[in-house]
């Protein structure tokens, strides 16, 4: 009976300390803010330059956003004394952004409307879903669900550049709201 109680207490304590060790991963307000800004700029931009040229803004902006987010995690980790792993974050953002650009190009060249309009969004949504699972972040999971809904809605009700503008514009709104929520959540329970 003593063994049982000690083992149960040890497992509970390990779970509590594991959650403390993973806490910096769930602080996602900064990347959401950065990627919200990128999407907010991309929404009007795609209507001006067309979706075929959006990659020349989105690709470097997303990679820069990934690096900026990694630097933010590094800095907050230095201050708090607990650093989150950065490699997964950078690798997933880079991979999803490049996959999105490939989908967009392939869809245009092959004349596949769905791949051209929804492909980049789906690639990014999958990337965020991987990060949500890795970080065990409910906030990121909500973002993923909202991104998927926005893609499905935009492809069914709009076409061409307005469809992409709707996608990234609605992502920006969702990201800003979730960034605000996550920020206030972490300020209340640091």
């Amino acid at each position: 009976m003593g063994d049982l109680r000690t083992a149960q207490e040890s497992l509970r304590e390990v779970a509590r300390l594991d959650a403390i060790g993973r806490a910096p991963r769930t602080e996602v307000w900064f990347p959401l803010l950065v990627f919200g800004l990128i999407n907010a700029v991309a929404a009007p931009l795609v209507l001006m330059i067309g979706r075929d040229h959006l990659g020349s803004f989105y690709l470097p902006a997303a990679l820069a956003g990934g690096v900026l987010s990694a630097l933010h995690y590094r800095q907050t980790g230095r201050v708090s004394g607990l650093q989150a792993p950065l490699f997964a974050w950078l690798a997933v953002i880079a991979g999803a952004t490049v996959a999105g650009a490939v989908c967009s190009d392939a869809g245009r060249e092959e004349g596949w409307r769905a791949l051209n309009l929804a492909g980049p969004g789906v690639a990014l949504t999958v990337g965020y879903a991987i990060l949500a699972l890795w970080a065990r972040s409910t906030v990121l999971l909500v973002a993923v669900a909202a991104m998927a809904v926005a893609i499905a809605f935009s492809v069914n009700v709009a076409d061409g550049d307005p469809a992409i503008a709707f996608q990234v514009g609605s992502w920006a709104v969702v990201f800003f709201c979730l960034a605000h929520f996550n920020y206030s959540q972490h300020r209340r329970h640091p």
Partner: peptide, 25 residues
């Protein structure tokens, strides 16, 4: 040992932790 298990549990989810953080936690 309880403390050593705790140290490994904290470090398992993080990239690294500093001495002061571990001591305080």
């Amino acid at each position: 040992q309880r403390v050593r298990l705790g140290i490994l549990a904290i470090l398992n989810g993080a990239s690294r932790a500093d001495f002061a953080f571990l001591r305080q936690t």
